[in-house]
C-alpha cells in the first residue's frame, strides 16, 4: 500500500501565512519515514492532512491511488497526537479507551507495558507517558495500514522512549504498517528511519 500527498498547500482560517506550499510525500507501507522541520513549519499540520483531519486547500491525499476521503468508517491512516492528555476523553475509563481500538490484540497491550491496574483508572489518574501508551495501542488496530507518529515520545524519559520505539518498530515491520516519524531529534530519526524528509517553509 502507498500513502501519497500530492502538491498540498494549506493555510489555517485565521489568515496567517501559508503553512504548506506544494508539499509532496510518499510513504510505502514497508518503510519508516522521518519528517523533520523547525517549530511552526507545519509538521503537525501535514500529519493532520495526511490522516484526514484537515482538508488541503490544493492538492490531494491518495491512499492506494484513491482519495483518502473515500474511505468511510475506520480510517486506515491513524495519527498519534503529541498530547495524550487531549487525545482521551477525561470521563472514560482507560479500558473503554482501548475498546475504541479496532480489535486490539492482547499482545499489543502487553508489548507497550500497559498494566492491568491502569485499565480501571480515569485519564487524570495516569501520567503522560502512561497515557501515551494507551494512545499508541488504540491506533494499532487491525485495519490500520499507516501510523503517523507526531512527536509521540518527546515528553518521555529515554528508557521509556526506547521501550516504546522498539515495540513500535517491531510491530510495524511485522504487520507491514507504514510509519511516519515526526521529530525534532535528528539522532532519533537516524536511528529509526530508512530515510528522512525535511519540510521547508
Amino acid at each position: 500500500m502507498k500513502l501519497e500527498a500530492r502538491d498540498i498547500s494549506f493555510q489555517y482560517d485565521n489568515g496567517y501565512r501559508k503553512i504548506l506550499n506544494e508539499f509532496s510525500l510518499t510513504l510505502d507501507s514497508k518503510e519508516c519515514l522521518g519528517l523533520t522541520a523547525p517549530s511552526g513549519f507545519g509538521k503537525t499540520t501535514s500529519c493532520k492532512i495526511l490522516a484526514g483531519y484537515e482538508k488541503p486547500e490544493k492538492g490531494q491525499v491518495l491512499l492506494d491511488g484513491k482519495p483518502l476521503s473515500s474511505y468511510k468508517g475506520y480510517c486506515p491512516v491513524q495519527m498519534i497526537w503529541q498530547h495524550p492528555e487531549q487525545s482521551v476523553n477525561p470521563r472514560l475509563r482507560m479500558k473503554e479507551v482501548l475498546n475504541e481500538g479496532d480489535r486490539l490484540e492482547e499482545r499489543i497491550v502487553e508489548g507497550l507495558g500497559i498494566e492491568q491496574g491502569w485499565l480501571n483508572r480515569y485519564p487524570a489518574e495516569l501520567s503522560g507517558g502512561e497515557l501515551q501508551r494507551f494512545c499508541i495501542a488504540r491506533a494499532l488496530g487491525e485495519r490500520t495500514r499507516f501510523i503517523l507518529a507526531d512527536e509521540i515520545t518527546t515528553m518521555l524519559d529515554l528508557i521509556t522512549q526506547s521501550q516504546i520505539w522498539q515495540f513500535l518498530l517491531k510491530e510495524v515491520k511485522e504487520r507491514e504498517i507504514g510509519l511516519l516519524v515526526v521529530s525534532h531529534s535528528d539522532p532519533l530519526l537516524k536511528r529509526l528511519c530508512d530515510r528522512v524528509q525535511k519540510l521547508d517553509g
Partner: peptide
C-alpha cells in the same frame, strides 16, 4: 471540536455512539 472526539470519528465510531459515549457523560 475536541481532539478525542475527532479521533473517535477517525476510529470509525458512529455518530450516535459518540453522542452517547463521549458527549453524554459531559
Amino acid at each position: 471540536e475536541s481532539q478525542y472526539i475527532r479521533i473517535a470519528e477517525k476510529l470509525g465510531i458512529s455518530k450516535g455512539k459518540i453522542a452517547v459515549k463521549h458527549m453524554l457523560p459531559h
